[in-house]
Design a protein around this nucleic acid. Structure first.
Lengths: 294, 294
DNA sequence: CGCTCTTGTGCATTTTCGGCACAAGATATG
DNA sequence: CATATCTTGTGCCGAAAATGCACAAGAGCG
């Protein structure tokens, strides 16, 4: 890098330390440790051959040279700050969300109209996919993924951990209350691949032998559609059937829920710095509060 | 580093590339490869979420956002450049030593050539003065002061506590051995204000009445010069006449020495932290080991 | 006197920077 | 039209810089 200029990070450290008259407070502002600030500043002094600070009780004070230098470069940094912030208000306002299909279709898609009214300057592109997008390679800015264990190794927020419950078309099951014998009478559907019917029965205390699963359709909205028309019973999380339940097309057959993993909203460390991405993330988390059990 | 600002090196690369409309020419200016510039710029675009350049045949051209951004941060970098250049004219490698005149002249000055060879990067300024410099107000970085009691209330090192002895030109006194009757035959000189001749006689057991002192020249090298030419006897500490004794211009007339205070090397607590000041202090203490009786 | 706050620094780890080598596209030239 | 030249893009890897941790030391305070 340019030999005529000192490391600009060191200049940044100096500017903050000079403004605060404190390495510790500069460190807080810049999000690093005080030792990083100390090293930057002393390295800068060595390089420039000028003492910029002298010790004071509880902090540092600027020397005459340091004060003069700060007077000159402080405003320059302010200009850079303002210019950079100004840019961020004109984002490539496109945010790409790569989501689990059921979540995309059942939760996100119905909210898009509202989103567009609220954020007309942001173009939210949704990719419904089960494949894990590489956020670090900018394939998507945000991703919604389902995990069973809850351990996620990238920056993420819990977006939904709703339990799964049995649902059916109203009236299909007498009094809309599921009994063990019903399980043999109706076709069983589910919104995910795991053996959630088996596991739910264990939790509910149903001592039955379930029929062998036939032709299960992986996360298919078609299954949900079929259940709405009385084709059988559906084991699903509330987020996936929220709208159908609200509009009376499905009813919940039991208060017993099965804890079965959670959906996480993953954020690229890089894209996460962009204002538009931060806005989308905040909006998603707000819109899905009801999907998170406490 | 600061989450709100992009890497400043990347900004620098952008500024140069924008100014040149070329990654290759920016690379030449900044002394890096074109690939470094390319990476910086594209990384900046990713981070800001804004396209700053578009491809052109043979080089790049700025987008509207890029051009506006450059218009704002370009001058800011110019300010930082100027301010930094302005600083480099006030080097940190300057150390100011405020010393007692005799010590400065007789001990320090003769060593300066050696010092400059050993520390070419340090400019040692010597102020020969009896006035007490205020180290805490950066009037000097180091000070050499004479105290009679040895108690110093600032951080200091003993630099010389050599006793005072009588000296004369070789052959002036028979067998170069001082006897009581000699005191009346020769003019008496001394290197300090106190009545060191009287006190020395007491210690030496000379029961004589000393002639009244006439026109005593305070710490004057002239007195030493006069004694070298046989004008009389000199009571001085060894540090002041070291060189003249070594080169045979003066001889010591007695092994009886008078303990009479000491010279201390005072260090400003603040300046003492600077590497150059520490180096000068260590060097002085090393060079004056012979001046310290144990 | 003990506690708190602040800076300094050795050491190790992490992150960023940068060079090399090559690829690819556009332009110029014979 | 083929070749040469110029410019940017990028994978890979090593170097350099940045950073945190842990501790030390000094000053102020109750």
């Amino acid at each position: 890098m340019p030999r005529s200029l000192p490391p600009l990070n060191a200049l940044r450290a100096f500017e903050a330390a000079g403004r605060h008259q404190s390495f510790s407070r500069a460190a807080d502002e810049l999000g690093v440790s005080h030792s990083a600030i100390s090293r930057h500043v002393r390295g800068l002094e060595q390089r420039l051959g000028v003492q910029l600070f002298r010790e004071a009780s509880r902090g540092v004070t600027l020397t005459a040279e340091g004060s003069h230098y700060l007077d000159r470069i402080g405003p320059a940094f302010d200009v850079i700050d303002d210019a950079t912030d100004g840019l961020s208000d004109t984002p490539m306002g496109r945010v790409t969300l790569n989501s689990e299909p059921t979540f995309a279709i059942n939760v996100v898609a119905p909210l898009l109209a509202s989103f567009e009214r609220q954020f007309p300057e942001i173009e939210l592109r949704i990719i419904a996919s089960s494949a894990m997008a590489d956020l670090d390679r900018y394939e998507a800015d945000l991703a919604i993924r389902f995990t069973r264990s809850g351990v996620v190794d990238v920056p993420s927020d819990l977006i939904s951990n709703a339990r799964v419950y049995p649902f059916a078309a109203p009236g299909l099951v007498p009094d809309n209350v599921l009994l063990p014998e019903h399980l043999a009478q109706f076709r069983l559907y589910k919104d995910r691949g795991d053996d959630v019917w088996r596991w739910w029965c264990d939790v509910a205390g149903f001592d039955v032998t379930l029929p062998a699963q036939d032709g299960w359709r992986l996360r298919s909205a078609l299954a949900q559609e079929a259940v709405i028309y009385g084709a059988g019973l559906l084991m699903a999380s509330r987020d996936g059937v929220l709208r159908d339940v609200e509009e009376g097309r499905l009813v919940q057959l039991s208060q017993v829920g099965l804890s079965h993993g959670a959906f996480h909203l993953l954020t690229s460390g890089q894209a996460g710095r962009r204002k538009a991405v931060r806005q989308v993330r905040a909006w998603l988390l707000e819109q899905t509060i009801a999907l998170r059990d406490h």
